[in-house]
Design a protein around this nucleic acid. Structure first.
Lengths: 234, 234
DNA sequence: CATTATAATTGTACCGGTATAATTTATCAA
DNA sequence: TTGATAAATTATACCGGTACAATTATAATG
């Protein structure tokens, strides 16, 4: 673990344990430098990381302050591991509908940057939250990267397996959002009526080296899904 | 203008002018150092900035690569100036319905961190894109920060005025998304039928010093609004 | 007491350096 | 040709420094 990552974790832990609120001031840079016995640039890097994560904001000439959104129960759209992490307060379970190796749709092939003759793992599952149906998820995993999946893995966190089990490093993702009306099939799975609203999120997940490995289409139950995003200006 | 910001702008311009595509490799760090005659850390800072903006991704041991989402016509949810910037290819106009100084709702007061006895500018407007109704927007601006607004400003880009006219620095924002069904009033303004889907985005915009100055509720026409988000892992 | 000028505080920009880790390329052996 | 091994390339971590800009606190002024 890198120093600046470790320090970021400890600062975040400190904020949580002491239940600091939006606007609360943290110790000054020099204090952190002394406390962790590292140079100024390392502390700066830790704090920049926390700033990007939306945990703090820094004000030149003033100090470092805690940033905390107030509302509870919202899913972060930006923590790009199948949101398992943001909801560990909640009870998230998965119900696997389909899991097999197949050829990708044209759309999936394009987004994964592969040929339609290449193999993908196709995963279809329903995710529940506190007993309620949260979303319907269809994913295509590039099989030459995600070489193996089974029912057990897919029932749990696929991304955790990708990181820990396969030792791959997840980099960035592109997400596309659309709102529309539920069709018959989606409505059935989400236990809603056709024509009611839905939120569709298409995501393309890449490794740190830029290779796309997962193309997912997720249809959310509009009654269960509230999202939040923390944005920074550049 | 800071060196690293200027360099970032020039690199981005270079990418656009040469129409570089996803995965295309940029010159190595040392080339940039020589070209711009700055130290390595300054170039690194420029590239980190571009990485956060989703313009490039860096691969240790390999190089710096262009990152470009493929789909056109999607609005970025993260560029937190009233999306005017992402759509200058499009024709975005505003129709002001209401503009006045008033007392905030309780909800607005809470989110702006002020008292209900304080003054706010209340702005209600419809935003059109290519002649189509894009969204209905209701905003509350803390009058002690945004001291003056008029019809002309509100018809154009409020955020541009806040930055250039008032000299304020916009920092971060918290956004909350929800999907639901249109009520009668919303449907009327968006020229849709009640009961059809809507996307509601509530945003709280803060200055760089952490002060919230704008609480907005935007209801999008689901037929017109497609969004994209570029996420990075930390 | 309000206003203004000054000083202290505090984070940011930028330099230039060493060491290291990930990746790619080149080399060599089978 | 293949596969392993070594070398070169390339970005990242981390150090420690100077100068500077924004903010806040203090002192001076009327």
């Amino acid at each position: 673990m890198l120093k600046y990552q470790q320090i970021a974790i400890e600062i975040e832990k400190y904020i949580e344990e002491n239940e600091l609120q939006q606007g609360d001031k943290l110790p000054v840079l020099e204090t952190f430098m002394a406390q962790f016995e590292v140079s100024k640039s390392t502390i700066t890097k830790s704090l920049d990381l926390l700033e990007r994560k939306g945990v703090v904001f820094q004000v030149r000439g003033s100090g470092i302050f805690v940033r905390r959104h107030r509302r509870k129960g919202y899913i972060s759209l930006l923590s790009n591991q199948g949101f398992k992490k943001d909801l560990d307060d909640f009870n998230v379970t998965s119900e696997v509908i389909e899991l097999e190796v197949r050829k990708p749709t044209e759309e999936a092939a394009v987004n994964l940057n592969i040929e339609q003759s290449d193999d993908v793992y196709y995963v279809k599952r329903i995710r529940n939250i506190n007993g309620q149906t949260l979303c319907l998820e269809e994913s295509f995993y590039n099989k030459s990267i995600i070489t193996y999946l089974n029912n057990e893995i897919v029932s749990e966190s696929i991304f955790h397996y990708i990181r820990e089990g396969l030792g791959l490093k997840v980099g960035f993702s592109d997400m596309y959002l659309q709102v529309d009306q539920l069709n018959a099939e989606e409505a059935k799975y989400l236990q809603l009526e056709p024509g009611l609203p839905k939120l569709c999120v298409e995501s393309i997940f890449h490794l740190t080296n830029g290779q796309p490995f997962d193309f997912s289409k997720v249809t959310y139950n509009y009654q269960q899904s509230q999202f939040f995003i923390q944005a920074n200006s550049y």
